[in-house]
Every structure is written in structure tokens, then in C-alpha cells.
Simulated scan of single mutants.
Amino acid sequence: MSRSITRRKISLPSLSPGSSHELAVYSFGAANEGKSIYLQAGLHADEHPGLLVLQHLLIQLMQLDELGKINGQVTVVPYANPLGMSQRVFDSVLGRFDLANGENFNRNFPNCSRVISQKIKAGVKCSSSDWKRNFATHLASVKPTTPTATLKLELTKMAMQHDIVLDLHCDVDCVSHLYASHAQQDQAVRLATALNIPVVLLEPDDAGGHAFDNVYGSTWRELEINHAITSGARGFSATIELRGKANIDDRLAQTDAAGLLNFMAQEGIIDAATTAGTDSQTTPTQTYPLVAASHIPCPAAGIVVYKKNPGDSVIESEVIAEVVHLDSDIIGERTPVHSDTNGVLVIRQAPGLVRPGQRLALIASTTLPAIRDENRPLLDA
């Protein structure tokens, strides 16, 4: 392995006597040589397409390193949640929620708001590198009390030292899409274009829930709006949803890895000439406000049969699915499920047996709803 490539392991506290877990971390290049990017996959440990994408990316990065084509620093965590990966029930990985307390693994990450507030009140203005040192000092003082809290702290420590942070996820059945901040729409669209992603969902910086990418983004946003960093110095973060859980395929993964390299080239992290020959975008990218996304609920218990596919355009009142009743006195009875807006069907959430009230689909729209449930989270990643 080249001297500009490092591989290290971060040990996590044991969940039980005789067991151990650790994070593997690969770093390419040097932090002081240019812009840096951090990538991770599998934070929701039951979402696996990103794991394969990063394997292909690591192979490409090793080749680029041998050619001296890495201009900045690239950090890759190929599996971000070994705790969740170990949560198997009858051979199914249940890695979205922590079985110890039911908490979503992509919530309640530690943030740096306290140290930022203190520094801003003191009138501190400094460079991005100085702020990164402040973040590191603050996070070093955090004392986690559980293995999951330790995992989240270690991931946050690494992410906060980079200029760009990308978190790879997927959904049950969906067209590829990404979540990013309204304030960074241009960079989000460039990322989506590089990856041939048709849908960008833009959220406010204060979306809540302390999700991984939001904790990173809101930290830099607070510095930006308080003029504590120079213009254009804010870090960029995004959550990338790589289609559905079943879309694990070498061809797709190679294409996605090439798209990530294309984006890195645009950001000056790798030599642009190395991305020649990657697939050009075939689908135009459209942005939508996440607050306008419609979460379509299930009206009844039964078997859902979808009438629309991910990526299809839909219009208000159109039937997008039917729920087949299994216990009705009327044989063959079905309840139609209608779109309540004009837009694009992004996610089909619930295959097979469904219950009343669960989300069946997410439709991206540019039309804000007349009434919004304020208790519904903006992001369900």
C-alpha cells in the first residue's frame, strides 16, 4: 500500500463480553494538500448498495494514488455501522434502529453548537482549518456512555475535519435521489449531475433530528450566517439515496463510483483527466423543496399493488396503488390510493402486506401543501 494511503481501525466498546466491533478507515492523500472529502456507507446497516459502491471506489482510488492523481484528501469509511450489521434476526439484518433503545442510527449525532456559540459571542473569526481544530477540541471532550454513542462520535469527529461529506444510503424501492441544504443548491445539483441523479430534495439547515449530514451542514451554516467564516468557506454535505435495497449490482456500483470520482474531479480533489470516459448524464436533474414532499399513507390493511414506478410523473388524484383486502366480505375488493399532488413518485416504501397509516410512497412536488403536519419529520433518511 502506498505511503499516501493509510488504513486504520477504530475500536468500539463491546456490546457484550467476548464480542468486539471496529470501524475501518481508509485515507488517501493529505489534508494540507487541497480540498478534502469524506464518504461513508451503511449507517443504516440494512442498506447495502453503498457498501458495494465504496468497494469499487476504493479500487479506483488506489489506482489514482499510484498515478499520483489525488490532489487533496479522500477518507472512506466502507461500513459505518458495524453495530447495526451485527443485529441479525433469523438471518435478516435489522440495522436501521438500535435494538438497545429503538433509536434510529441516523439521529442524535453530537454537534458543535456550544463551542460555536461561545466563539461567536467572543467575536472569533478564523479560517476553516482553525474551525476544524475547534471542532476537534470540542468533540474530544464529549464522553459517550454507550457503544452506539461512541460510534456516532467517532464518525462525527472524522466528518467535521473535511470540506465535503457524503453519506450513502438507499430506500426500499426508489429512483436515485439526494438530500441537501437549500443554501447549497448549486453544489447539490453538480453532485446529482455527476451521479446521474434525477431528483434533489432541498431541506432547511434546521431540519431537526440531528441526522449525520444535517449536523455537519448546520454547523457550517451557523458560522456562515454569523460571518464567522469567509464567503464560500462553508463545508458541503449530502445524503445520497442509491435506488432501492435490491439494486446491488456491479455495473450500477461501478457507474456510481465513477460519478463520485467525476464530482471529486470537479472539486479539484483528483485529477480531472482521470474521469474521461465516464457516462454522461442521461436524466435531467430537478430540484424540489423537501417541505413540499407528499407522504402518501396507507388507507387499509391488505396487500399493496403499485400502479406507478419510481421516477414516474404523477398528477393529483391519479391512482398510484391499490390495497387488496384479504378479509373482505366482497371477494376481490380493493381500495385505491391516490396521489394528492402533482410531481414525481420517488419512493415506493412498503411492498407486500401493509397496515393502515404506514407510508406507501413519497412524491416530490414543487407545490407546498395547504396544511402540513408539523409533527412529521422533514427527512426520513
Rank of each mutant, 00 (worst) to 15 (best):
H169Y: 11
K9A: 07
R376L: 15
S176E: 12
G352M: 11
G123A: 05
T146A: 01
T278L: 01
N32Y: 02
Q60R: 15
A276E: 09
V172Y: 00
A238C: 15
G209R: 00
V189D: 09
A180I: 02
E322D: 12
P336M: 04
S129K: 05
E318A: 13
L83P: 00
Y38S: 02
I225A: 05
N196H: 03
T145E: 13
G84H: 05
H177S: 04
P49C: 00
V89D: 05
K245R: 11
L252R: 03
N104I: 08
T137I: 03
Y38F: 15
P13T: 00
V93H: 03
R376K: 15
G208N: 04
G102F: 07
L151N: 02
Y288V: 01
A350M: 14
C170Q: 01
V215E: 03
M85K: 13
Q60N: 11
A45D: 13
P13L: 01
Q185F: 02
S19R: 10
S113E: 14
D163E: 02
I116V: 14
N81T: 07
L260K: 01
Q87N: 14
H210T: 08
H138M: 03
A183R: 08
L153W: 09
V344H: 05
E241V: 03
Q286H: 09
A211H: 02
R221Q: 14
F28I: 03
S128F: 02
I303D: 03
G235I: 06
L67F: 10
I303T: 15
Q55C: 07
Q281N: 05
M264F: 08
L51R: 13
L99P: 13
Q40L: 10
D98P: 05
G68V: 06
A41Y: 05
H295L: 10
H295Y: 13
I269S: 08
A228M: 08
P356A: 15
P78N: 13
R348S: 07
R372C: 09
Y216R: 05
I320A: 11
D206S: 15
A258G: 06
P49R: 01
V215Q: 04
A180E: 04
I347G: 06
P289Y: 03
P284T: 09
H138Q: 10
I330C: 08
S294Y: 12
H227R: 12
I331K: 14
K121P: 00
A211W: 00
L67P: 00
A321K: 04
M264N: 03
T367K: 14
N247P: 00
S218Q: 14
K35H: 10
A100M: 14
I331G: 02
A276S: 10
A30V: 00
T148R: 13
I225G: 05
L168V: 11
E47A: 07
N262W: 00
R3N: 11
H44Q: 12
I120W: 09
D250E: 12
F236S: 04
L51A: 10
G50S: 07
S141Y: 00
A207V: 02
S4K: 06
R372G: 06
T287A: 15
I347H: 08
V305F: 04
V89I: 14
M1P: 09
K157Q: 14
D171A: 11
R243L: 02
T137E: 15
A293I: 02
G34Y: 06
Y288H: 07
I116R: 09
A30K: 10
L191T: 06
D279A: 15
S181Q: 07
T146V: 04
G302F: 12
E33V: 05
I347R: 12
L326F: 12
A228C: 07
R114N: 08
A246Q: 09
A207E: 06
